[in-house]
Simulated assay, not measured.
Amino acid sequence: MSGQQRLGVGVIGAHAWAEQAHLPGYRAYERAELVALCDTVPERAQHLAQMFGVRKVYTDAAELINDPEVQMVDVCTPTDTHLPLSLAAIAAGKHVISEKPLAHDAQDAFEAARLAQAAGVRTKLGFTFRYSPAVRQIKRWIDDGTLGEIFHVHGLEQNSQFLDPSYPLRQVPAGADWNALIPSSIVGYGSHLLDLVRWCAGEYKSVIGSLHNYVPERLVRGYEGMQRIMVEDGTAALAEFVSGAQGILQTSYIAVGNYPGVELRVYGSRGAAVARLVEEGGVAETLHFATPDQVEFRKIDLPSTAYPPGTTLHTPWPELYYRNLIRYWVDEILDELPGECTFYDGAKSQQTVNALVQSHRERRWIDLPPEREASVP
């Protein structure tokens, strides 16, 4: 297709993440056209529409989805709305990207992937950290054999976003029992991490995890005063992969440190690599590499071509990574390229989240289903 073709984009949700990541990503890419923005608070939608040059504003998501100029729908809304809005977009024949998690139950996410395939539309999950230049370099080293046979993959996603109990907790699942442990960091943070590690090590075979509540009382958005709530704010886990590799994983939003708090460590027979995605000193990420004959890790500086045009390591990480995600996603659609990080991948991540929750409750290893449960374009 012509490089001049542009993809009509409609974004649902005008909150902070849309402002920091999604909308800057579309505005910066010449092959995307911001056609419409929708939010239930019209003033919020109008404000961001003016800021980012969005032509149309809606307060009803169905109207945006059915707009004939909107070819792709971006669901950037609270968790419980991801699945119904994504299904509505699929039913309307629109390509759709959703923030994670797509669904609380992996089977619902697998079904969404199947429906998208049947409708002939493309999907993507907003797993932002796949689009870190450092992480993508590690993936290239895995694929081209630079790291050799992969033995160990360690993944961390932890920062202190909710360490302060007076900072309001968001998106408690509807109908959750506040007297029982409510999975939280493993869902919001862990879904990213589980996807990254699977991308590097292959399919999960078995997992075992420990979930914990460390801050028992905190403010909760929508409620007055401090609330006693058994929300899981830290998880540690082990994983075995079909390939034979081993994994160590940890998620937390009460571990002291800066955003986004991601570290990916991959150890193979020919080399090892560490990507540290922690914004410090105005730098978004660092990458280190070692080999059996040079075991001291050395810093790797990537070429400017590894970054989206107009960005550097000093670009704030939400914009840096999402601008990369957007250009890959738009090109996949317009140039009919193979899909990456689809709803199927989101379903596989949620399947592992669900297995870790089950593992904690039953205090045992959980085997993951061995067969592929869905296919997507």
Rank of each mutant, 00 (worst) to 15 (best):
S2E: 07
G8I: 05
A14C: 13
H22W: 14
E30L: 10
E30P: 04
R31K: 14
A32R: 10
L34F: 09
L37R: 07
C38D: 07
E43M: 03
Q46W: 10
H47M: 14
M51E: 13
Y58P: 05
Y58H: 09
Y58K: 06
T59A: 08
I65F: 06
V70C: 06
T77G: 04
T81G: 05
H82A: 14
L85E: 13
I90R: 05
I97A: 13
K100Y: 02
K100H: 07
H104M: 09
A106I: 02
A113K: 09
A113E: 12
L115T: 11
F129R: 10
A134D: 13
R136D: 11
G148W: 09
H152Y: 10
V153H: 08
S160C: 14
S160W: 12
F162M: 11
L163S: 14
P165E: 08
Y167R: 11
L169C: 03
R170E: 14
Q171V: 01
G175R: 02
L181Q: 09
S184G: 07
I186D: 04
Y189Q: 14
L193F: 08
D195R: 01
G202D: 04
G209Y: 00
N213I: 00
R218A: 08
V220H: 05
V220R: 02
Y223G: 00
E224D: 12
M226D: 01
M230A: 15
E232G: 00
A239L: 02
G247S: 04
G247W: 03
G247Y: 04
T251E: 04
S252A: 01
Y253A: 10
E263A: 11
T286Q: 10
P292R: 05
F297I: 03
R298C: 05
T305R: 10
T311D: 11
T315F: 04
E319S: 13
Y321L: 14
Y322H: 13
D335T: 03
G339H: 10
E340W: 09
A347S: 07
S349L: 02
Q350G: 03
T352I: 15
L356G: 00
Q358D: 10
E362I: 00
E362Y: 00
W365M: 08
W365D: 08
W365S: 09
R372K: 12
E373T: 04
E373N: 01
